[in-house]
């Protein structure tokens, strides 16, 4: 059975990616499961979707613990523990990553034992409006890596899943999915089917005897304030607002009031300070700044520049 996991952000089309790949496998005669996994998080937050495909009926359910292929549509997810990009990977797991950086750089950074393949056309989709086609690219690339899906089946699968979005969107997605498929001929079939779970020599679960605990602890109540700041929603951001303090007029009530996320506070000198741990990158501040003193920069570039200086 093939077990494939797609990691991206809400809005990047990971559900679509899983459905295109699922449909393509299905067209090739495979039994298939595909599903997105939703949480509380919205557009921009890490999400995943998965595909199982086998020549027999599939009895497994739920998330994939030991993937054969992990597709990462957004490289900035890799350091986020909650995104779980590397959960359950082993030396036989292929990692397909959307990045401008080399495979070797990623192998070193992640200390990754398995094979890494870069997503063709990665890095070209920085514009927010373009993100929807990343899913199609991921699906096309993944289809080539498993090596069981024909170009024709892929094209039809894209049509199956994208048709509802209109002809233009479908054509663009098909074109990109096929381009990714074509570009990865060198890696065709590098993903191997995983084994079934072994019922011999398994590690027994550590079941515990649960005790009744005081209601104060055992009710779904929070007896602290503003614990949400523990959640680093700054990780959702693909574009970063940067204040040019030379042009900032100090009318900080505008950006600070209108930032929906309370992520711009005003310091003692009256200057607005963006809290990048929590700024989701909506860029409302960029749009509303009266002297246009806030610019949007690609998050990845800023991070690379910071790494370079560090």
């Amino acid at each position: 059975m093939y077990r494939i996991r797609f990691h991206g952000r809400g809005g990047q089309g990971m559900k679509t990616a899983s459905r295109i790949l699922g449909s393509a496998f299905f067209r090739e005669g495979y039994e298939v499961q595909d599903a997105p996994r939703y949480g509380a998080e919205r557009r921009g937050a890490p999400i995943f979707a998965y595909v199982r495909a086998a020549q027999r009926p599939i009895h497994e359910r739920g998330g994939i613990a030991q993937p054969d292929l992990v597709v990462v549509a957004d490289e900035t997810l890799t350091p986020i523990p909650a995104a779980g990009v590397l959960a359950g990977v082993s030396a036989r797991t292929v990692l397909l990553i959307n990045s401008a950086e080399s495979e070797d750089a990623w192998k070193a950074r992640l200390n990754y034992a398995g094979r890494i393949v870069r997503l063709p056309g990665g890095g070209e989709t920085r514009e927010r409006a373009e993100t929807a086609t990343i899913g199609a690219i991921c699906a096309g690339a993944a289809a080539r890596l498993v090596g069981r899906i024909s170009r024709e089946a892929l094209a039809l699968a894209v049509d199956d899943e994208i048709a509802a979005l209109g002809r233009e969107a479908a054509e663009k997605s098909r074109e990109r999915a096929l381009a990714a498929f074509d570009a990865l001929d060198f890696a065709e079939g590098c993903v191997m089917e995983g084994e079934a779970h072994d019922a011999r020599g398994y590690a027994a679960p550590e079941w515990v005897e649960l005790a009744a605990e005081a209601a104060l602890a055992a009710a779904p109540d929070i007896r602290a304030v503003a614990t949400s700041v523990e959640v680093r929603t700054g990780l959702w951001r693909t574009l970063r607002p940067v204040i040019d303090y030379d042009h900032c007029k100090g009318c900080s009530w505008v950006c600070s009031t209108l930032c929906p996320d309370s992520a711009i506070q005003v310091d003692a000198e009256g200057a607005p300070r963006i809290d990048y741990d929590h700024c989701k990158g909506c860029l409302v501040c960029v749009a509303v700044c009266p002297p246009h003193a806030i610019r949007a920069l690609p998050e990845k570039d800023v991070q690379q520049a910071q790494e370079a200086t560090a």
Partner: peptide, 28 residues
């Protein structure tokens, strides 16, 4: 406008969508 609060009480880090107009009103 200058009388509006410049420090904010509602904690950041909520799972509302980026750019949520409802959250914007709530935080004000």
């Amino acid at each position: 406008m200058k009388d509006l609060p410049s420090t904010h009480l509602l904690g950041s880090g909520t799972p509302m969508c980026a750019g949520c107009g409802g959250l914007g009103a709530l935080h004000e």
